[in-house]
C-alpha cells in the first residue's frame, strides 16, 4: 500500500536531526508573533535558561518575526502561495539557531545582500557605531521599521548572520536568514 502519510515521518526525522524545537509555517501577523514568542519563552523557562541568553533569543526572535510581518509582500495572482514564510528555532547543546525564510522580489536582493554583508564586516564596536548612527539619522519607514533589525540581531547574537538567496523565478527569490546565539555551557 502506498504510504500517503509518510511525509509526516520524514518531516519529523528532519526536524529532530536539525534539533528544531519550534517551527511555524504560514502567514505572519503580530498575533502569531506573540504566540510564537510565548511558546519559545515557556520552553526556555522550563529548561531554566540563563536570563541573558533568554533575552538575547527573545530579542533576535522579535526582530526576525517583525521583519517578516513588515516585509511579507502581497504576491497576487499565480504567486499566492508565496505570501507565507517559515520561522524556526533550533536548540543544540551549545547554541540556539533562529532561522527564517520568506519570499522577496528579486529587485530587493542586492540591497539586502549589501546591508547584510556590511553588518558582517563590522566588529562589536563597529556595529555599535552603525546602530547609533542609524538610530539618530533614520525615520520610521511607512512599514514602521527603523532599519535597525538586522544590526540588532547581529549585536545581540554576537555572531555573523548567515544568509542565502535562492532564485525562484524571474520575479522572486527565497531569502533564508540564520542567527546563532551561544549558550554559556
Amino acid at each position: 500500500m502506498e504510504k500517503k502519510l509518510n511525509y509526516i515521518f520524514e518531516l519529523h526525522k528532519t526536524l529532530s536531526e536539525q534539533n528544531i524545537i519550534l517551527v511555524y509555517e504560514g502567514e505572519f501577523s503580530q498575533e502569531i508573533t506573540k504566540s510564537v514568542l510565548s511558546m519559545a519563552e515557556k520552553n526556555m523557562d522550563t529548561t531554566n535558561e540563563d536570563l541573558n541568553i533568554k533575552k538575547k533569543v527573545f530579542n533576535v526572535m522579535v526582530e526576525c518575526l517583525q521583519n517578516i510581518c513588515k516585509h511579507s509582500e502581497e504576491f497576487g495572482g499565480d504567486n499566492d502561495d508565496f505570501n507565507t514564510a517559515i520561522f524556526m528555532i533550533g536548540k543544540e547543546h551549545e547554541t540556539y539557531k533562529i532561522t527564517s525564510g520568506n519570499v522577496i522580489y528579486n529587485n530587493k536582493v542586492e540591497g539586502l545582500k549589501a546591508k547584510l554583508e556590511k553588518i558582517n564586516s563590522l566588529d562589536k564596536e563597529g556595529l555599535k557605531e552603525y546602530y547609533k548612527n542609524t538610530l539618530s539619522n533614520s525615520e520610521l519607514s511607512d512599514k514602521g521599521g527603523a532599519g535597525l533589525g538586522f544590526i540588532d540581531m547581529a549585536r545581540k547574537s554576537g555572531q555573523k548572520l548567515a544568509f542565502e538567496f535562492t532564485k525562484i523565478d524571474e520575479q522572486i527569490s527565497f531569502f533564508s536568514l540564520q542567527s546563532t546565539i551561544a549558550r554559556n555551557i
Binding site: K55, F58, N59, V62, E63, Q66, L135, S136, S138, L140, G144, G145, A146, L148, G149, I151, D152
Partner: peptide, 12 residues
C-alpha cells in the same frame, strides 16, 4: 525589560 528596534527610535 525589553524593547524592539522600532521602539528604540521612539525612545530616542
Amino acid at each position: 525589560d525589553y524593547f524592539n528596534t522600532a521602539s528604540s527610535k521612539m525612545i530616542l
